[in-house]
Structures are given as structure tokens and as C-alpha cells.
Amino acid sequence: MYNLRRFIIKHHVIILFILLEVISILLLARSQNFHRNWMVNTTNDVVGKVYEWGSEVGNYFRLNSANKQLAEENALLRKQLSVVYDTTTCVYDITQGDTLFEYIPAQVVNNSTNQVNNYIIINKGTKDGIRRDMSVISTEGIVGVVTDVSRHYASVMSLLHSKSVVGVRIKQSQELASLKWETNNYRYGTVEDIPTHIILQKGDTILTSSHSDIFPEDLMVGTVEEFYPTAVDALNRAKIRYSTDFSTLRHVYVIHDLHKAERDSLKIRQQ
């Protein structure tokens, strides 16, 4: 016992060093999966507050472009609403269709694009009805998936994440493929597993597929920038440009899929 104590006292620096490094590695290893650990959850509110405070300053400089973007979206929504607009009674009747999705507007309080695993923090949390695994979109295209929620804030795993995989569809040919991120440039992603007979041109549109568990169907993802055909029998790849500009992301919508629980329970019963 005496020897042990002497050993610890003599080598306390190296022991402490190894201990702290082991703690770091364990924390890091646990954070590698989508749902991060208790530490991020418990501190999310404080971190969110600081970021919100910081982004309030920057927001003033972006009011102009934010206004423009929202006005454009308004115009688009009006156009879509005209389908259900009854000209005789001047009433918008949206009860005719079965509502599948609810959109919860939120603001980005922090966003990174230069890490290997990027997360976005938004200013809506459990009190606004945000839950894990809800999808997040902007007016330009898809953004990411909610991974952690605290009372007032939520963190969103952005498409710019080394583990991000999204089921996508090529608009022209309806073929399915999957979208990943190559971790170096926030403007471009990579579509993999494109069937060999499909040849893509620059500018072809990529949408979300109905097979994606996360995103609703037919949302804009991006456009093809470069097509890489492979020589032998392998599946093709393509570089795409995200339609969402992650560097200027401010206003987003969290999508509450009202039928998700129903679909999930069916899936469980099948197994």
C-alpha cells in the first residue's frame, strides 16, 4: 500500500495525463454516433444562449437578404395556395387534403461548416414541439436532422457531417441513390450508388426519395456538378452542389411528420 502511494505521488503527473486523455477519448468515441451524450444535452441550453446572444449582433447585417428570401418564399406559397383558394367565397380551404406535415419555423443561432462533423443549433426546443429525428429544411433545400433537444434549443446534424447519409432520387430517371459528404467543402456533396446505366449531366436535379425515413419526398437537395463514371461494373458517383447555402443559413423549418409514428409502428410489426 505504501509503495502504491509512493508510486502515485512520484508519477502523479503522468497518471493524471493518461487519465485525462482516456476521459477525452471515451467522450469522443461516444460522440461518434448520431445521438450525442449527456454532456452536450445538459449544457445545450447555456451554449444556445451564448450563441443566440452572439448571432443577434450578426443578424442586423443580414436583414436585407433575409427579407428578400422570405418575400420570395411568400410568393411561392401564395402560388401554391391558389390551388385551394376558393374564388367564390374568398376562403382558403386547406381542410380538404389530409395534412401530412407541420412546419415549425426556427432560427439558426449557431452553425459551423468547417469541421468534419458539423452541427447547427436552432432556437426552438421541446417546448415548441421539436423532437429527435425530425428533419430540418430551409427555403432552398434540405439542411439536416435533429439529434438533440433541450427545452429551448435543439442541435441539428447538418448534411455536412461525416456520418450523414440521405436517400435521394435523380429527378429525370427516378433512380435512387445515396448522398454523403466528403468533409472538405461545404458547397459540395457526393451522390453514390448510381446505377451503371444512368449517365448524369451537369445541372441535373437531385431530390429526396420517398425511401428516406427522415425527409419528406421531393425536396430539393442539389444539382449535379460533375459526373464520375466508373470503369468496370461498379456503381457511378457524382459530385453535387447543395441547393442550401450552409454558410448563410438563418431561417429554417423543422418538419413534424404526422404520420411517422404510424409508419414506424407498422415497420416494427413487420419484423
Binding site: 461516444r30 460522440s31 450525442r36 454532456m39 452536450v40
Partner: peptide, 9 residues
């Protein structure tokens, strides 16, 4: 780490 969401890094 708390701010960048990368505990341990």
C-alpha cells in the same frame, strides 16, 4: 468542445 459539440476532441 461544449460549444462546437465535439466532447473530448
Amino acid at each position: 468542445d461544449l460549444f462546437t459539440g465535439t466532447p473530448g476532441l
